[in-house]
């Protein structure tokens, strides 16, 4: 038996909205320590990982590890039927072929349940090594969203370079070039509005803007995003989901051939 209860459906709604265009389907791996997901986009250029920890839920029970194959577009359809403030409970019997989602309104005068058919999804699990990055940059997630959106109007790829001057995003295209630099800035009183650049060594990498834009669909989840960069390795774009866990997007760089 698996059962997990969240006090606010909005969190799960935002998570699924953040994922569903990049990865159409994937396995929710449930265990006593929580729910995790690892999925690649259809072109195998990026990897999405999700970790929701058991102690971040209001209630969490998992008697047996299970892999639940989910079509995120279909899960999104069901979650659109939940109110943002509804309590949401996910339930499945051991070896079930469906996941039940129960929504309860705040004053408990409306209760609904939806069963989502589960799929059998073959997926290759990749090992992601713990690693020290050359640069780790925390910035407002809305700022990240704006930068990658603005640059997309100029070019297809972006050169991200982190130096002691700041983090610079550069692109070029048919109409011209663009550079946006963010400096380390701890002036704003609200920590969410600050930019922190933790630099071990300068690093510069090129990425496809299309994917970086897609990751920004996670912006409503949290006010800050973290970018981790190392030469010749995928960038990690990480959004924390409160105390519950985090979603991470790994994007392979473009490398000169």
């Amino acid at each position: 038996m698996f059962e997990a209860r969240l006090p606010q459906a909005a969190v799960l709604k935002k998570l699924v909205e953040a994922l569903k265009e990049l990865v159409t389907e994937g396995n929710f791996d449930v265990s006593p320590s929580g729910i995790s997901l690892q999925a690649m986009d259809s072109s195998h250029v990026c990897l999405v990982t999700l970790q929701l920890n058991d102690d971040g839920f209001e209630h969490f029970r998992c008697d047996r590890n299970m892999s639940m194959g989910i079509h995120f577009g279909n899960l999104s359809k069901i979650l659109k039927c939940a109110g943002n403030e509804d309590t949401i409970t996910l339930k499945a019997e051991d070896n079930a072929d469906q996941l039940t989602l129960m929504f309860e309104s705040a004053n408990q005068d409306r209760i609904s349940d939806f069963d989502l058919k589960l799929m059998s999804i073959e997926s290759e699990h990749l090992g992601i090594p713990d690693q020290d990055y050359s640069a780790e940059v925390k910035m407002p997630s809305a700022e990240y969203q704006r930068i990658v959106r603005d640059l997309t109007s100029m070019g297809d790829t972006v050169l991200v370079s982190a130096t002691k001057e700041g983090i610079k995003f550069s692109t070029s295209g048919d109409i011209g070039t663009a550079n946006i630099t963010l400096r380390h800035n701890t002036t704003p009183e609200k920590e969410d509005e600050q930019t922190h650049i933790d630099l071990k060594e300068p690093v510069a990498l090129t990425f496809a803007l299309r994917y970086l834009n897609n990751f920004a669909k996670a912006t409503p989840l949290t006010p800050q995003v973290k970018l981790s960069l190392t030469k010749d390795l995928p960038v990690v774009v990480e959004y924390k989901v409160g105390e519950l866990g985090q979603v991470r997007f790994f994007l392979a760089p473009k490398i000169d051939d």
């Binding site: 195998h44 990749l126 790829t157 496809a208 390795l233 392979a252 473009k254 490398i255 000169d256």
Partner: peptide, 14 residues
């Protein structure tokens, strides 16, 4: 030019 690498070129199957 630059080539788009596949993500599985960086992470081995677990």
């Amino acid at each position: 030019g630059s080539a788009q690498k596949s993500i599985s070129a960086f992470f081995k199957a677990a």
